[in-house]
Design a protein around this nucleic acid. Sequence first.
DNA 1: TATTGTTATACTCTATAACTATA
DNA 2: TATAGTTATAGAGTATAACAATA
Lengths: 156, 156
Amino acid sequence: MTDGLATANNNGHDHDLELGGLDQALGFHLRTAQQYVAREFAARFEHLDLSPVQYSALVLIENNPGRRQADLAAVLGVRQPNLVVRIDDLVNRGLVSRSADPLDRRANSLRLTAAGKKFMTQVRKAHEQHTDSLRNVLGQQDYEKVVEILSKLSGL
Amino acid sequence: MTDGLATANNNGHDHDLELGGLDQALGFHLRTAQQYVAREFAARFEHLDLSPVQYSALVLIENNPGRRQADLAAVLGVRQPNLVVRIDDLVNRGLVSRSADPLDRRANSLRLTAAGKKFMTQVRKAHEQHTDSLRNVLGQQDYEKVVEILSKLSGL
DNA sequence: TATTGTTATACTCTATAACTATA
DNA sequence: TATAGTTATAGAGTATAACAATA
């Protein structure tokens, strides 16, 4: 293990509680697993000051230059008002440009700036380390399997 | 399909965005799948006015009468101050009793009241419907598989 | 000293309503 | 009339610090 977070999230409890089926409940495991992964992500992206949604937004903007915010919000599973402030931050930091879409002047065209493109090399490295850490806990096969199964719920 | 929520969460988007690997990222799927399952849960437990943590707490109290709050908090993955208010609510509703532990007078002994035990029949029914809905989307085999894999991250 | 439960509090994420400017 | 983006705001969920009672 390279650090404490690479260990699975047992919350430090050697519990002896009767779980009463809680250990077979998907909702329970989803919630606690998500807590663990969110913490791993936070530790890995702390120096880049990016939230999970901001990371995903940057990846989508990089791969789909010129798209509008509504399209991103739909794929990311965030409401438009909540995405606005996240994009505001990326624009203020000079990583993303917002320009009016000439075909529809209500819409904003999102693109990475030169600084944003350069920033993505660090972002990719952080995400690789994050993914490696999770793969190290689950194993390659189970990592792919759980992604495949969860896709049916996340709808992507 | 029995209702709208029984459908997987595609957020209503027939997107044509290049995902740039986002669809292979566990963190992304965990977050969006958790949103879907939390909404399914909320719809299914609305009439009982129970949060996911309160549901889990009730199950643990039922199966481990007399335990202290700290033990529950550890298993549930919640901080003690946040559990207090949840238990407060269950106590105020007459479902759970808090009594001083005679062996350690700092601690609270948690038990279901008679009303709480009766309430659990409705709770079990709601959770069965919730689980059936998720199993219907995933299939029995994948439901069990994803629970097994996520257990490595949730540490239960 | 350390721990249990509690209060107070702050921060993040998420949700809706209402506005503006366009369409 | 409807949509894209925005503002303001409210509600969850979660985090820490500090205190009283007890160990």
